[in-house]
Amino acid sequence: MIAVEYATPIIRLYDNFIVALQGGMSDASVDRLRADVTERIGNQTARGLILDVSALAYMDSFVTRAVRDLAVIARLMGVTTVVCGLSPEIAITLIDMGLELPGVMTALNMERALEALFRAREQDANELRSSDAI
């Protein structure tokens, strides 16, 4: 019997990628998601990445690491990442385990994640303008 693996959809909205992580993902599909997202960032122009984890009942260290890796990879490729939809239980667990997603922006929900991305972009633009002025 062949295990059916559903690829996680990667939605492109304006110039942001939106990925909603699914509950019950196997390690293999997490790896595949990481490869897919990296590839899409490389192929298509994008400036922001939102990882929505609200569908996850829990986050183990593997998924946490994958999320952080994706954020670092995306930043290296010039894409700002926001993780959104963490539940209080997952937040407490992450803190207790010492997995604090350092260097990753977080937001309470998708809407605020989009807002945060726009704000970050605006800030970049301002910095550019001020450096031009110099």
């Binding site: 963490l86 937040a91 407490i92 803190i95 997603l101 977080t106 309470l108 945060a116």
Partner: peptide, 12 residues
């Protein structure tokens, strides 16, 4: 400190 860290992880 943990409380504030967790709040930050939630995006607050």
């Amino acid at each position: 400190i943990r409380l504030f860290k967790a709040a930050r992880v939630l995006g607050v």
